[in-house]
Design a protein around this nucleic acid. Structure first.
Lengths: 217, 217
DNA sequence: CGGTTACGTTAATGGTTACTAACATTCGTA
DNA sequence: TACGAATGTTAGTAACCATTAACGTAACCG
Protein backbone atom coordinates (compact mmCIF):
# COMPACT_ATOMS: atom_id res chain seq x y z
CA UNK A 1 0.00 0.00 0.00
CA UNK A 2 2.03 2.83 -1.21
CA UNK A 3 0.66 6.15 -2.11
CA UNK A 4 1.14 9.59 -0.87
CA UNK A 5 0.01 10.47 2.57
CA UNK A 6 -3.65 11.29 2.53
CA UNK A 7 -4.15 15.01 2.40
CA UNK A 8 -4.50 16.14 5.94
CA UNK A 9 -7.28 18.64 5.76
CA UNK A 10 -6.18 22.17 6.24
CA UNK A 11 -8.67 23.31 8.80
CA UNK A 12 -7.93 26.96 9.15
CA UNK A 13 -5.62 28.23 6.49
CA UNK A 14 -7.41 30.02 3.74
CA UNK A 15 -4.55 31.52 1.79
CA UNK A 16 -6.55 34.23 0.08
CA UNK A 17 -7.22 32.93 -3.42
CA UNK A 18 -6.20 36.00 -5.31
CA UNK A 19 -5.74 34.61 -8.79
CA UNK A 20 -8.30 35.39 -11.38
CA UNK A 21 -9.14 32.36 -13.46
CA UNK A 22 -7.97 32.48 -17.02
CA UNK A 23 -7.91 29.91 -19.79
CA UNK A 24 -5.30 27.32 -18.93
CA UNK A 25 -3.68 24.81 -21.24
CA UNK A 26 -5.01 21.38 -20.41
CA UNK A 27 -2.87 19.12 -18.35
CA UNK A 28 -0.97 21.78 -16.52
CA UNK A 29 -1.03 22.13 -12.79
CA UNK A 30 -0.60 25.88 -12.75
CA UNK A 31 -2.27 28.64 -10.83
CA UNK A 32 -2.10 27.63 -7.19
CA UNK A 33 -5.47 27.83 -5.54
CA UNK A 34 -7.23 29.72 -8.26
CA UNK A 35 -9.11 26.50 -8.85
CA UNK A 36 -10.90 26.83 -5.54
CA UNK A 37 -12.45 30.12 -6.55
CA UNK A 38 -13.35 28.77 -9.95
CA UNK A 39 -15.09 25.79 -8.39
CA UNK A 40 -16.92 27.99 -5.92
CA UNK A 41 -18.19 30.24 -8.67
CA UNK A 42 -19.38 27.37 -10.84
CA UNK A 43 -21.01 25.63 -7.89
CA UNK A 44 -22.80 28.82 -6.91
CA UNK A 45 -24.36 29.11 -10.33
CA UNK A 46 -25.46 25.49 -10.26
CA UNK A 47 -26.81 25.66 -6.71
CA UNK A 48 -28.75 28.79 -7.53
CA UNK A 49 -30.33 27.17 -10.56
CA UNK A 50 -31.18 23.71 -9.26
CA UNK A 51 -30.65 23.71 -5.50
CA UNK A 52 -27.98 22.05 -3.42
CA UNK A 53 -29.43 18.55 -3.56
CA UNK A 54 -30.22 18.93 -7.26
CA UNK A 55 -26.57 19.32 -8.22
CA UNK A 56 -24.15 16.42 -8.17
CA UNK A 57 -20.43 16.43 -7.65
CA UNK A 58 -20.13 15.30 -11.24
CA UNK A 59 -22.10 18.35 -12.38
CA UNK A 60 -19.77 20.71 -10.55
CA UNK A 61 -16.71 18.97 -11.89
CA UNK A 62 -18.02 19.12 -15.43
CA UNK A 63 -18.69 22.84 -15.04
CA UNK A 64 -15.00 23.51 -14.38
CA UNK A 65 -13.71 21.07 -16.97
CA UNK A 66 -12.70 18.28 -14.65
CA UNK A 67 -14.50 15.13 -13.75
CA UNK A 68 -16.28 14.51 -10.47
CA UNK A 69 -13.93 13.39 -7.74
CA UNK A 70 -11.26 15.94 -8.64
CA UNK A 71 -13.14 18.27 -6.32
CA UNK A 72 -11.92 16.35 -3.32
CA UNK A 73 -8.46 17.75 -3.96
CA UNK A 74 -9.85 21.17 -3.02
CA UNK A 75 -12.71 20.55 -0.61
CA UNK A 76 -13.32 17.84 1.91
CA UNK A 77 -16.84 17.27 0.64
CA UNK A 78 -19.93 18.77 -0.85
CA UNK A 79 -21.07 20.13 2.48
CA UNK A 80 -17.75 21.86 3.06
CA UNK A 81 -17.98 23.47 -0.35
CA UNK A 82 -21.37 24.96 0.46
CA UNK A 83 -20.22 26.02 3.91
CA UNK A 84 -17.24 27.90 2.55
CA UNK A 85 -19.38 29.53 -0.09
CA UNK A 86 -21.88 30.86 2.42
CA UNK A 87 -19.22 31.85 4.91
CA UNK A 88 -17.44 33.83 2.24
CA UNK A 89 -20.46 35.79 1.12
CA UNK A 90 -21.71 36.40 4.65
CA UNK A 91 -18.31 37.70 5.61
CA UNK A 92 -18.11 39.94 2.56
CA UNK A 93 -21.51 41.44 3.26
CA UNK A 94 -20.70 42.05 6.89
CA UNK A 95 -17.29 43.49 6.09
CA UNK A 96 -18.55 46.00 3.56
CA UNK A 97 -21.38 46.86 5.91
CA UNK A 98 -18.98 47.57 8.74
CA UNK A 99 -16.68 49.60 6.52
CA UNK A 100 -19.57 51.68 5.30
CA UNK A 101 -20.88 52.46 8.74
CA UNK A 102 -17.56 53.57 10.19
CA UNK A 103 -16.60 55.73 7.23
CA UNK A 104 -19.89 57.47 6.56
CA UNK A 105 -20.47 61.06 7.54
CA UNK A 106 -23.86 60.56 9.10
CA UNK A 107 -26.68 58.07 9.37
CA UNK A 108 -28.30 59.16 6.13
CA UNK A 109 -25.08 58.69 4.20
CA UNK A 110 -24.48 55.41 5.95
CA UNK A 111 -27.92 54.14 4.98
CA UNK A 112 -27.40 55.19 1.38
CA UNK A 113 -24.07 53.41 1.31
CA UNK A 114 -25.54 50.25 2.79
CA UNK A 115 -28.26 50.34 0.18
CA UNK A 116 -25.85 50.98 -2.67
CA UNK A 117 -23.58 48.18 -1.53
CA UNK A 118 -26.32 45.64 -1.20
CA UNK A 119 -27.92 46.53 -4.52
CA UNK A 120 -24.57 46.27 -6.25
CA UNK A 121 -24.04 42.91 -4.64
CA UNK A 122 -27.46 41.57 -5.53
CA UNK A 123 -27.27 42.73 -9.12
CA UNK A 124 -23.61 41.85 -9.57
CA UNK A 125 -23.69 38.32 -8.21
CA UNK A 126 -27.26 37.07 -8.32
CA UNK A 127 -26.29 33.43 -7.95
CA UNK A 128 -24.47 34.03 -4.68
CA UNK A 129 -27.33 36.06 -3.26
CA UNK A 130 -29.80 33.37 -4.23
CA UNK A 131 -27.80 30.60 -2.63
CA UNK A 132 -27.17 32.77 0.38
CA UNK A 133 -30.76 32.90 1.49
CA UNK A 134 -31.91 29.49 0.33
CA UNK A 135 -29.34 26.91 1.31
CA UNK A 136 -28.42 27.74 4.89
CA UNK A 137 -30.25 24.67 6.15
CA UNK A 138 -27.97 22.38 4.17
CA UNK A 139 -24.83 23.59 5.92
CA UNK A 140 -23.67 21.23 8.67
CA UNK A 141 -23.78 22.52 12.18
CA UNK A 142 -20.35 23.85 13.05
CA UNK A 143 -20.38 26.29 10.13
CA UNK A 144 -24.07 27.11 10.17
CA UNK A 145 -23.78 28.88 13.47
CA UNK A 146 -20.93 31.05 12.19
CA UNK A 147 -22.87 31.99 9.09
CA UNK A 148 -25.90 32.91 11.10
CA UNK A 149 -23.78 35.06 13.35
CA UNK A 150 -22.39 37.01 10.41
CA UNK A 151 -25.85 37.46 8.94
CA UNK A 152 -27.11 38.72 12.26
CA UNK A 153 -24.24 41.18 12.56
CA UNK A 154 -24.98 42.48 9.08
CA UNK A 155 -28.63 43.06 9.91
CA UNK A 156 -27.60 44.80 13.10
CA UNK A 157 -25.55 47.28 11.06
CA UNK A 158 -28.73 48.25 9.29
CA UNK A 159 -30.70 48.40 12.51
CA UNK A 160 -28.08 50.59 14.17
CA UNK A 161 -28.07 53.07 11.32
CA UNK A 162 -31.85 53.13 11.15
CA UNK A 163 -32.04 53.63 14.88
CA UNK A 164 -29.95 56.76 14.60
CA UNK A 165 -32.26 58.07 11.92
CA UNK A 166 -35.44 57.16 13.80
CA UNK A 167 -34.66 57.01 17.51
CA UNK A 168 -38.28 56.74 18.57
CA UNK A 169 -38.97 53.62 16.55
CA UNK A 170 -38.61 50.33 18.40
CA UNK A 171 -35.72 48.24 17.22
CA UNK A 172 -37.83 45.15 16.67
CA UNK A 173 -39.83 47.08 14.11
CA UNK A 174 -36.68 48.34 12.44
CA UNK A 175 -35.33 44.81 12.33
CA UNK A 176 -38.47 43.48 10.69
CA UNK A 177 -38.37 46.34 8.21
CA UNK A 178 -34.74 45.56 7.43
CA UNK A 179 -35.54 41.94 6.73
CA UNK A 180 -38.37 43.00 4.45
CA UNK A 181 -36.16 45.39 2.51
CA UNK A 182 -33.45 42.75 2.15
CA UNK A 183 -36.13 40.48 0.75
CA UNK A 184 -37.04 43.17 -1.73
CA UNK A 185 -33.44 43.63 -2.81
CA UNK A 186 -32.66 39.91 -2.91
CA UNK A 187 -35.67 39.17 -5.07
CA UNK A 188 -33.92 40.86 -7.96
CA UNK A 189 -32.30 37.70 -9.34
CA UNK A 190 -35.71 36.17 -9.94
CA UNK A 191 -37.04 39.11 -11.92
CA UNK A 192 -34.03 39.67 -14.11
CA UNK A 193 -34.08 41.43 -17.40
CA UNK A 194 -37.12 43.57 -16.79
CA UNK A 195 -35.13 46.77 -16.90
CA UNK A 196 -31.58 47.81 -17.83
CA UNK A 197 -29.17 47.40 -14.95
CA UNK A 198 -28.72 51.03 -14.08
CA UNK A 199 -32.43 51.74 -14.16
CA UNK A 200 -32.95 48.70 -11.95
CA UNK A 201 -30.34 49.96 -9.52
CA UNK A 202 -32.00 53.34 -9.22
CA UNK A 203 -35.45 51.81 -8.90
CA UNK A 204 -34.45 49.42 -6.14
CA UNK A 205 -32.70 52.11 -4.15
CA UNK A 206 -35.69 54.42 -4.42
CA UNK A 207 -38.15 51.74 -3.40
CA UNK A 208 -36.03 50.56 -0.50
CA UNK A 209 -35.57 54.09 0.83
CA UNK A 210 -39.28 54.76 0.62
CA UNK A 211 -40.16 51.49 2.30
CA UNK A 212 -37.77 52.13 5.18
CA UNK A 213 -38.97 55.70 5.66
CA UNK A 214 -42.57 54.58 5.82
CA UNK A 215 -41.73 51.81 8.27
CA UNK A 216 -40.21 54.19 10.78
CA UNK A 217 -43.19 56.43 11.21
CA UNK B 1 -43.70 -19.00 -1.89
CA UNK B 2 -44.99 -16.76 0.60
CA UNK B 3 -48.60 -17.55 1.42
CA UNK B 4 -50.63 -15.41 3.67
CA UNK B 5 -47.99 -14.46 6.19
CA UNK B 6 -49.95 -12.27 8.53
CA UNK B 7 -47.79 -9.89 10.41
CA UNK B 8 -47.19 -11.14 13.91
CA UNK B 9 -48.56 -7.97 15.36
CA UNK B 10 -51.87 -7.67 13.65
CA UNK B 11 -52.96 -4.09 13.31
CA UNK B 12 -55.68 -3.18 15.67
CA UNK B 13 -58.52 -1.02 14.62
CA UNK B 14 -56.48 2.06 15.42
CA UNK B 15 -53.26 1.74 13.51
CA UNK B 16 -50.57 4.35 13.87
CA UNK B 17 -52.17 7.10 15.89
CA UNK B 18 -50.30 10.09 14.68
CA UNK B 19 -50.92 13.46 16.11
CA UNK B 20 -51.98 15.12 12.91
CA UNK B 21 -55.08 17.23 12.74
CA UNK B 22 -58.17 16.39 10.67
CA UNK B 23 -59.88 13.97 13.00
CA UNK B 24 -60.73 10.90 10.98
CA UNK B 25 -62.54 7.84 12.23
CA UNK B 26 -59.72 5.55 13.31
CA UNK B 27 -59.30 2.51 11.12
CA UNK B 28 -61.57 3.55 8.37
CA UNK B 29 -60.64 4.01 4.81
CA UNK B 30 -63.24 6.69 4.33
CA UNK B 31 -62.95 10.43 4.02
CA UNK B 32 -62.71 10.49 0.27
CA UNK B 33 -59.75 12.47 -0.88
CA UNK B 34 -59.12 14.30 2.34
CA UNK B 35 -55.84 12.46 2.41
CA UNK B 36 -54.66 14.30 -0.67
CA UNK B 37 -54.90 17.64 1.07
CA UNK B 38 -53.22 16.27 4.15
CA UNK B 39 -50.32 14.96 2.10
CA UNK B 40 -50.00 18.22 0.22
CA UNK B 41 -49.87 20.19 3.43
CA UNK B 42 -47.24 17.95 4.99
CA UNK B 43 -45.16 17.91 1.83
CA UNK B 44 -45.28 21.69 1.60
CA UNK B 45 -43.85 22.03 5.07
CA UNK B 46 -41.08 19.57 4.30
CA UNK B 47 -40.24 21.09 0.93
CA UNK B 48 -40.10 24.55 2.46
CA UNK B 49 -37.72 23.37 5.14
CA UNK B 50 -35.32 21.15 3.21
CA UNK B 51 -36.03 21.64 -0.49
CA UNK B 52 -37.65 19.30 -2.98
CA UNK B 53 -34.64 17.07 -3.49
CA UNK B 54 -33.89 17.04 0.21
CA UNK B 55 -37.17 15.34 1.06
CA UNK B 56 -37.79 11.68 0.32
CA UNK B 57 -41.05 9.91 -0.37
CA UNK B 58 -40.50 8.08 2.88
CA UNK B 59 -40.25 11.38 4.72
CA UNK B 60 -43.57 12.57 3.35
CA UNK B 61 -45.25 9.30 4.14
CA UNK B 62 -43.94 9.37 7.69
CA UNK B 63 -45.25 12.91 8.12
CA UNK B 64 -48.81 11.74 7.45
CA UNK B 65 -48.53 8.50 9.40
CA UNK B 66 -48.16 6.12 6.48
CA UNK B 67 -45.10 4.58 5.01
CA UNK B 68 -43.48 5.64 1.77
CA UNK B 69 -45.14 4.09 -1.23
CA UNK B 70 -48.65 4.69 0.10
CA UNK B 71 -48.38 8.08 -1.60
CA UNK B 72 -48.69 6.47 -4.99
CA UNK B 73 -52.35 5.78 -4.21
CA UNK B 74 -52.92 9.53 -4.34
CA UNK B 75 -50.31 10.94 -6.70
CA UNK B 76 -48.60 9.47 -9.71
CA UNK B 77 -45.18 10.52 -8.42
CA UNK B 78 -43.15 13.01 -6.50
CA UNK B 79 -43.06 15.39 -9.45
CA UNK B 80 -46.82 15.29 -9.79
CA UNK B 81 -47.20 16.09 -6.12
CA UNK B 82 -45.08 19.20 -6.47
CA UNK B 83 -46.83 20.19 -9.67
CA UNK B 84 -50.25 19.99 -8.09
CA UNK B 85 -49.04 21.94 -5.09
CA UNK B 86 -47.70 24.80 -7.18
CA UNK B 87 -50.65 24.78 -9.56
CA UNK B 88 -53.01 25.02 -6.63
CA UNK B 89 -51.32 27.97 -5.00
CA UNK B 90 -50.78 29.81 -8.28
CA UNK B 91 -54.41 29.36 -9.14
CA UNK B 92 -55.54 30.56 -5.73
CA UNK B 93 -53.40 33.68 -5.96
CA UNK B 94 -54.61 34.48 -9.43
CA UNK B 95 -58.24 33.82 -8.55
CA UNK B 96 -58.28 36.08 -5.53
CA UNK B 97 -56.42 38.68 -7.54
CA UNK B 98 -58.99 38.59 -10.30
CA UNK B 99 -61.87 38.73 -7.85
CA UNK B 100 -60.35 41.72 -6.13
CA UNK B 101 -59.81 43.67 -9.28
CA UNK B 102 -63.31 43.21 -10.66
CA UNK B 103 -65.05 43.98 -7.40
CA UNK B 104 -63.07 46.98 -6.24
CA UNK B 105 -64.42 50.48 -6.47
CA UNK B 106 -61.32 52.08 -7.93
CA UNK B 107 -57.66 51.45 -8.51
CA UNK B 108 -56.63 52.56 -5.04
CA UNK B 109 -59.09 50.18 -3.41
CA UNK B 110 -58.03 47.44 -5.80
CA UNK B 111 -54.38 47.89 -4.91
CA UNK B 112 -55.16 47.84 -1.21
CA UNK B 113 -57.13 44.66 -1.65
CA UNK B 114 -54.34 43.02 -3.63
CA UNK B 115 -51.91 43.96 -0.92
CA UNK B 116 -54.14 42.72 1.87
CA UNK B 117 -54.73 39.46 0.09
CA UNK B 118 -51.11 38.76 -0.57
CA UNK B 119 -50.00 39.67 2.94
CA UNK B 120 -52.67 37.43 4.42
CA UNK B 121 -51.49 34.65 2.15
CA UNK B 122 -47.83 35.06 2.94
CA UNK B 123 -48.36 35.25 6.68
CA UNK B 124 -51.04 32.57 6.75
CA UNK B 125 -49.24 29.91 4.74
CA UNK B 126 -45.53 30.62 4.77
CA UNK B 127 -44.56 27.15 3.66
CA UNK B 128 -46.62 27.36 0.49
CA UNK B 129 -45.27 30.79 -0.35
CA UNK B 130 -41.73 29.59 0.18
CA UNK B 131 -42.16 26.56 -2.04
CA UNK B 132 -43.97 28.67 -4.59
CA UNK B 133 -41.02 30.82 -5.47
CA UNK B 134 -38.25 28.27 -4.97
CA UNK B 135 -39.23 25.01 -6.57
CA UNK B 136 -40.66 25.95 -9.94
CA UNK B 137 -37.64 24.52 -11.70
CA UNK B 138 -38.34 21.06 -10.33
CA UNK B 139 -41.76 20.85 -11.94
CA UNK B 140 -41.75 18.82 -15.16
CA UNK B 141 -42.50 20.65 -18.32
CA UNK B 142 -46.18 20.23 -19.08
CA UNK B 143 -47.20 21.72 -15.74
CA UNK B 144 -44.42 24.26 -15.44
CA UNK B 145 -45.77 26.24 -18.33
CA UNK B 146 -49.23 26.38 -16.78
CA UNK B 147 -47.84 27.55 -13.45
CA UNK B 148 -45.79 30.24 -15.12
CA UNK B 149 -48.85 31.40 -16.99
CA UNK B 150 -50.83 31.78 -13.79
CA UNK B 151 -47.99 33.62 -12.11
CA UNK B 152 -47.73 35.95 -15.06
CA UNK B 153 -51.46 36.63 -15.01
CA UNK B 154 -51.26 37.43 -11.32
CA UNK B 155 -48.47 39.91 -11.84
CA UNK B 156 -50.41 41.47 -14.68
CA UNK B 157 -53.30 42.12 -12.32
CA UNK B 158 -50.96 44.21 -10.22
CA UNK B 159 -49.52 45.96 -13.26
CA UNK B 160 -52.96 46.80 -14.58
CA UNK B 161 -54.07 48.33 -11.32
CA UNK B 162 -50.82 50.26 -10.95
CA UNK B 163 -51.12 51.48 -14.49
CA UNK B 164 -54.48 53.01 -13.72
CA UNK B 165 -52.99 54.76 -10.72
CA UNK B 166 -49.92 55.98 -12.59
CA UNK B 167 -50.71 56.16 -16.29
CA UNK B 168 -47.51 57.96 -17.19
CA UNK B 169 -45.23 55.29 -15.77
CA UNK B 170 -43.97 52.70 -18.25
CA UNK B 171 -45.35 49.25 -17.66
CA UNK B 172 -41.91 47.63 -17.59
CA UNK B 173 -41.04 49.76 -14.62
CA UNK B 174 -44.30 48.91 -12.88
CA UNK B 175 -43.68 45.23 -13.54
CA UNK B 176 -40.22 45.39 -12.03
CA UNK B 177 -41.61 47.26 -9.04
CA UNK B 178 -44.31 44.63 -8.62
CA UNK B 179 -41.74 41.86 -8.59
CA UNK B 180 -39.71 43.72 -6.01
CA UNK B 181 -42.73 44.24 -3.76
CA UNK B 182 -43.72 40.60 -4.06
CA UNK B 183 -40.17 39.76 -2.99
CA UNK B 184 -40.61 42.01 0.01
CA UNK B 185 -43.88 40.36 0.98
CA UNK B 186 -42.67 36.82 0.31
CA UNK B 187 -39.59 37.30 2.44
CA UNK B 188 -41.79 37.27 5.51
CA UNK B 189 -41.49 33.52 6.16
CA UNK B 190 -37.74 33.89 6.66
CA UNK B 191 -38.04 36.63 9.26
CA UNK B 192 -40.80 35.12 11.35
CA UNK B 193 -41.47 36.00 14.91
CA UNK B 194 -39.96 39.47 14.86
CA UNK B 195 -43.28 41.14 15.48
CA UNK B 196 -46.80 40.03 16.39
CA UNK B 197 -48.81 39.01 13.38
CA UNK B 198 -51.11 42.02 13.19
CA UNK B 199 -48.25 44.47 13.61
CA UNK B 200 -46.38 42.60 10.87
CA UNK B 201 -49.41 42.80 8.60
CA UNK B 202 -49.71 46.53 9.05
CA UNK B 203 -45.99 47.08 8.62
CA UNK B 204 -45.78 45.08 5.41
CA UNK B 205 -48.76 46.86 3.88
CA UNK B 206 -47.34 50.25 4.76
CA UNK B 207 -43.91 49.45 3.37
CA UNK B 208 -45.29 47.93 0.18
CA UNK B 209 -47.55 50.91 -0.46
CA UNK B 210 -44.68 53.33 0.07
CA UNK B 211 -42.35 51.35 -2.17
CA UNK B 212 -44.90 51.24 -4.98
CA UNK B 213 -45.70 54.93 -4.70
CA UNK B 214 -42.05 55.85 -4.90
CA UNK B 215 -41.48 53.57 -7.87
CA UNK B 216 -44.13 55.29 -9.96
CA UNK B 217 -42.77 58.78 -9.67
C1' DC C 1 -73.66 -11.58 -0.50
C1' DG C 2 -70.19 -10.38 -4.07
C1' DG C 3 -67.75 -6.98 -6.14
C1' DT C 4 -65.66 -2.67 -6.40
C1' DT C 5 -63.25 1.10 -4.46
C1' DA C 6 -60.10 3.22 -1.51
C1' DC C 7 -56.16 2.69 0.99
C1' DG C 8 -52.49 0.49 3.11
C1' DT C 9 -48.47 -2.89 3.70
C1' DT C 10 -43.59 -5.05 2.77
C1' DA C 11 -40.22 -6.54 -0.56
C1' DA C 12 -37.75 -5.94 -4.71
C1' DT C 13 -35.41 -3.15 -8.54
C1' DG C 14 -32.83 -0.16 -10.99
C1' DG C 15 -30.68 4.14 -11.08
C1' DT C 16 -28.06 7.90 -8.86
C1' DT C 17 -24.79 9.75 -5.71
C1' DA C 18 -21.12 10.96 -2.44
C1' DC C 19 -17.01 9.41 -1.42
C1' DT C 20 -12.68 6.40 -1.50
C1' DA C 21 -8.79 3.84 -3.68
C1' DA C 22 -5.26 3.38 -6.65
C1' DC C 23 -2.79 5.23 -10.00
C1' DA C 24 -0.72 9.12 -13.34
C1' DT C 25 1.43 13.72 -14.61
C1' DT C 26 3.45 18.26 -14.10
C1' DC C 27 6.51 21.35 -11.92
C1' DG C 28 9.21 23.92 -8.56
C1' DT C 29 13.16 23.18 -6.10
C1' DA C 30 16.75 21.18 -2.93
C1' DT D 1 18.14 14.81 -11.23
C1' DA D 2 15.25 13.18 -7.96
C1' DC D 3 11.63 14.24 -4.93
C1' DG D 4 7.43 15.84 -3.22
C1' DA D 5 3.48 18.65 -3.63
C1' DA D 6 -0.41 19.82 -6.41
C1' DT D 7 -3.78 18.13 -9.30
C1' DG D 8 -5.76 14.97 -12.29
C1' DT D 9 -7.74 10.30 -13.86
C1' DT D 10 -10.69 5.90 -13.83
C1' DA D 11 -12.78 2.10 -11.03
C1' DG D 12 -15.11 0.78 -7.45
C1' DT D 13 -18.51 0.79 -3.09
C1' DA D 14 -22.08 1.49 0.00
C1' DA D 15 -26.04 4.08 0.75
C1' DC D 16 -30.12 6.21 -0.72
C1' DC D 17 -34.15 6.91 -3.43
C1' DA D 18 -38.19 6.83 -6.61
C1' DT D 19 -40.94 3.60 -8.32
C1' DT D 20 -43.21 -0.93 -9.04
C1' DA D 21 -44.96 -5.52 -7.66
C1' DA D 22 -47.63 -8.38 -5.06
C1' DC D 23 -50.57 -8.76 -1.60
C1' DG D 24 -54.14 -7.53 2.36
C1' DT D 25 -58.29 -5.25 4.37
C1' DA D 26 -62.15 -2.40 5.49
C1' DA D 27 -66.25 -0.10 3.92
C1' DC D 28 -69.86 0.97 0.61
C1' DC D 29 -73.27 -0.48 -3.07
C1' DG D 30 -75.84 -3.19 -6.26
Amino acid sequence: MRGVTPPSESPRSTPTPHGTATARPPGTARARGSRRAEILRAAAALFAARGFHGVSIEDIGAAVGTSGPALYRHFTGKDALLAEMLLDISERLRATGAAVVTSADGPQEALDALLAGHVAFALGDPALITVHDRELDNVPEPARRAIRRLQRLYVEEWVTVLSELHPSCPQARLRAATHAVLGLLNSTPHSAGELPADAMTALLRTMARAALSSAAS
